[in-house]
Amino acid sequence: MFLAFTLLTLGSALAMAFQKNVIVAGLFLVATFIGVSGLFILLSNPVSAALQIIVYAGAILVLLLFVIMMLNAHEEESPQDDLYLQRYIALGVGGLLLGGSLWFIKQSKLLQSVAERPIDQIAPTSLNEIGAEMLTRHIVSFEMIGLLLLVSMIGAITLVKKRL
């Protein structure tokens, strides 16, 4: 199961990255999010999996596809000038990150000691626990995220509206 969801996630992410048509790329992004949600279920976290589907695949992707179809910019344009140096630097950074992360996963002793902990009798995270945690220990962050959502909503309206 882990392998299946991993292949779904990484395969559709790669297909998205190399896709010419932006709408098809958006649909591949939906498949990626469904794969990520499956990984969350395997991590015994069904609440996060449901939220992943509802918020990402439901809300954010619908907003994104709506904007794509409204803008009528479905194909990427041909480049004005070839920025080869920038592309090689970008590929170099990516290769460096890949090598570093592989080295970290293979070599880190701290990671191994964490990975050898027993995880057989872990109960799935319940919505009760999350709610209690969020509204007691993290109440200030909770209020701040509500304020941030309000501010970003006002900001988005102000940016797009021509005359207020």
């Binding site: 976290n45 999350i130 995220i145």
Partner: peptide
């Protein structure tokens, strides 16, 4: 999960998707 299934991770996941929603809108 490997820290014992603490609900703190899910709480922070909620905050992250809140920030992601703001970022999407703006």
């Amino acid at each position: 999960k490997w820290q014992g299934g603490a609900p703190t991770a899910s709480t922070f996941y909620l905050f992250i998707i809140g920030v992601a929603a703001c970022e999407a809108a703006v």
